[in-house]
């Protein structure tokens, strides 16, 4: 029994590792082909991908709909920014610490949310997403209010430039985001294929049956929240490192963007999360390509991405709730 489960864990880890390696190679290849602008976009994809994974884990896997992931991203972002500006820590130390910070926030949120379900949870987390960024003004001396805290990824260290050549700023952004995204992907894939993944799916599908089988329902629910918050915190930390950590960087709409990406791609799968993120990040560029051919006012092109992505969101849930990637990938329950 023990041997079997060990073997299984082994093969799960190997499967996830292979996926992650392929992912890294594809990103590096794309990164080398893209121009500076698209390299920047690609690093945004990597960063938001981690955030979308937090939605996939929470909503797709365990069935809890949270609209407050943006607030958890803000927690990760502020932690990193404070550690980097006040304690002059390197981002490689600040980010892991921030993940712990976000996980603690997720724990608090999870404890509050464990007894909620459905629209109650959605609404409450939405209010959380609205209220948390206002703390920045409340404690102005620490968080600097609306101005926020400027932080960035800085420049590559000497050894890196010496080995791989001097990267441009956009390339360096990409190289910073990539290892974190790869680790996130590895963990997410492992979670999905593993025992806890199965247990969480059982929460989603058969709440009462799961509790009868001895799954401690609220403890698992809280645990999912913590894991999901860690992903969101990581994503938020990297998101802030694009230049600024402030309330305007983590608006309520950020949470909705993550959800939209997760649903469009396919809320049940990791590849769906990635596809959804690509759609959301590159949609404005694609729309620009099309509407450049028409003479449209600026206000039309400003609102077009939001309009198209919202229409896609509605069409997805009405016509094909499984999203682009479908549900095939994780049929084994």
């Amino acid at each position: 029994m023990c041997v079997v489960s060990k073997l299984k864990a082994h093969s799960t880890a190997r499967k996830s590792l292979i996926r992650t390696l392929i992912f890294v190679i594809v990103i590096l290849f794309l990164g080398s082909r893209f121009d500076a602008y698209n390299q920047g976009q690609l690093s945004v994809v990597l960063i938001l991908f981690i955030g979308v994974l937090s939605v996939t884990i929470l909503t797709g896997i365990s069935g809890q709909l949270s609209l407050g992931q943006g607030a958890l991203m803000a927690v990760g972002g502020y932690c990193t920014a404070l550690l980097m500006t006040n304690y002059k820590l390197s981002l490689w130390i600040a980010i892991p610490v921030s993940i712990i910070g976000a996980a603690i926030a997720g724990l608090l949120l999870g404890v509050a949310a464990a007894r909620l379900s459905g629209p109650y949870l959605a609404g409450t987390t939405l209010v959380v997403a609205l209220a948390i960024p206002t703390l920045a003004n409340r404690f102005f001396s620490v968080f600097k209010g609306d101005e926020g805290l400027p932080v960035d990824v800085g420049y590559s260290p000497k050894w890196f430039s010496n080995t791989f050549g001097e990267p441009t700023y956009e390339q360096w952004q990409l190289y910073v985001a990539l290892p974190f995204a790869a680790i996130a992907l590895f963990f997410a894939s492992n979670i999905l294929l593993s025992r806890s993944g199965r247990m969480w799916r059982s929460i989603r599908d058969h709440e009462s049956a799961a509790s009868l089988c001895g799954v401690n329902f609220s403890r698992q629910k809280i645990f999912v929240f913590v894991v999901s918050a860690s992903f969101a915190g990581l994503s938020g930390a990297l998101y802030g490192l694009r230049g600024l950590v402030g309330p305007s960087v983590y608006p309520v709409s950020l949470s909705l963007t993550l959800l939209t990406a997760a649903v469009l791609g396919g809320i049940r799968s990791i590849s769906g999360a990635f596809i959804g993120t690509i759609i959301i990040v590159f949609l404005p560029d694609w729309i620009d390509l099309v509407i450049d051919n028409f003479e449209l006012s600026e206000q039309v092109s400003n609102y077009m991405p939001a309009l198209i992505s919202s229409v896609l969101l509605i069409l997805t849930v009405v016509i094909n709730p499984a999203g682009v990637a479908g549900t095939k990938l994780h049929k084994h329950k």
Binding site: G63, R204, H206, E207, M304, A306, L307, V311, I314, P321
Partner: peptide, 28 residues
């Protein structure tokens, strides 16, 4: 369907749809 088999997802889908509607109305 498989996706909609669980109560929690059946409850989440209309919420997601209403958020989509909100987005459409605001963009329009």
């Amino acid at each position: 369907t498989e996706l909609l088999s669980s109560d929690s997802m059946r409850a989440a889908i209309p919420v997601i749809a209403s958020l989509g509607i909100l987005g459409v109305l605001q963009a329009l």
